Amino acid sequence: MDLKKILIVGLGSIGLKHLRIAREIFPESIIGVLRHKKTNEVTADADKIFFDLSQALKFQPQIAIICSPASEHVKISSALVGQGVHVLIEKPISDNQKGLEELNCKAIKNNCVLAVGYNLRFLPSLMKFKNLIDKNLIGNAYSVRSEVGQYLPNWRKTDYRDSVSAKKILGGGVLLELSHELDYLRWIFGEVESVQAEIGHQSKLEIDVEDTAHIILKFKESKNKSNLVASLNLDFIRHDKARICHVIGGKGTLRWNGLTGDIDLFEPDKTKWKNIYKYKMDQDGSYKDEWLHFIDCINKKITPKISFQDGIKVLNIIESIKIASSSGKKVLVK
């Protein structure tokens, strides 16, 4: 593919990252940026700036990266796909189910690649973690404990109260903003059968969305004829930033640290953890690999590792979690 025109939609922190990476990988391409607010600010690495979707469509990009608020993803993606543009949608694919199937059908009709930006799947440490579990390093998995958390005001460089994370209308809250965990747990352990949950606003943060979620995920029957159960905690309130997953098996416990790139093993009859894998974290590495994979899917006409259907399944789980929390009951995931 002779990539001449690229469009980046949205210029928040993730949009700026994608813009920088696009310029690095494709130095000769013309890169346009669609922003929702008019400004005279000069945008480094961008060749053209648009403030209206119709202007961006006239630019006729070949690919687009959607980094706008989740509530705008479907509308913008649908317009681009309708013009034959290949689209990578940053997670989550949307804040609700409306228009998703129509968007998928339109992409199929126009031979467009639709990919979803769950970039953690491109982390070497997480890929290794999955590989070790698949190879039964710790035997059959009996239990999973996963958590991610970071104090929202420290996460956002601007006023957190104005961020996407803080506003329901933009698709904020821990369930959508921290949905990476739901994606990688599905990827490693299979489809989720049912959920139980308690979600809420526990802190004094000035936001109108949930800042905490305590979730129980029951996976569909595995190859060892058991239903694996995982506990998942998501939050915007902890000051000790964390992204970690423990898998407890018949032959030991495996621990992945998503912040350091470490994988540790605790073997039976041992008294301490043993580091068995370490990958020096590269803040841009997984995003660059995601970009290259996206382009490869277009060139080879293959399905992305994280497909549009994967994005829909994560959203299905999120909606089931909300119902479970409000009803106080176990909810089957559709």
Rank of each mutant, 00 (worst) to 15 (best):
F50N: 12
G99R: 06
V116H: 02
P61K: 12
R35S: 04
A324P: 08
H214V: 04
I6D: 04
H214A: 05
H180P: 04
Y287V: 10
W273S: 12
E101C: 09
L123A: 13
E101S: 14
L232M: 04
G250N: 14
Q62W: 00
K330F: 07
L126H: 10
Y118W: 04
D52M: 06
W256G: 15
A115K: 14
G311F: 10
H86V: 05
K330G: 00
R156G: 00
G12T: 05
D45F: 04
I30T: 08
I248W: 13
S77G: 07
K241H: 12
K168R: 15
C245Q: 08
S71R: 10
G139S: 10
K330L: 05
K135R: 15
I237L: 03
N316S: 07
I63M: 01
W256K: 10
L114A: 12
I25V: 03
T260P: 12
S146D: 06
K241S: 06
R121W: 08
T43K: 03
V314D: 15
V333R: 05
V195Q: 05
L103G: 10
L185V: 02
D264P: 08
P69K: 04
Q55E: 15
S326Q: 08
I295E: 01
G32L: 12
L137T: 13
I302E: 12
Q55W: 12
K300W: 09
L152K: 08
N224Y: 15
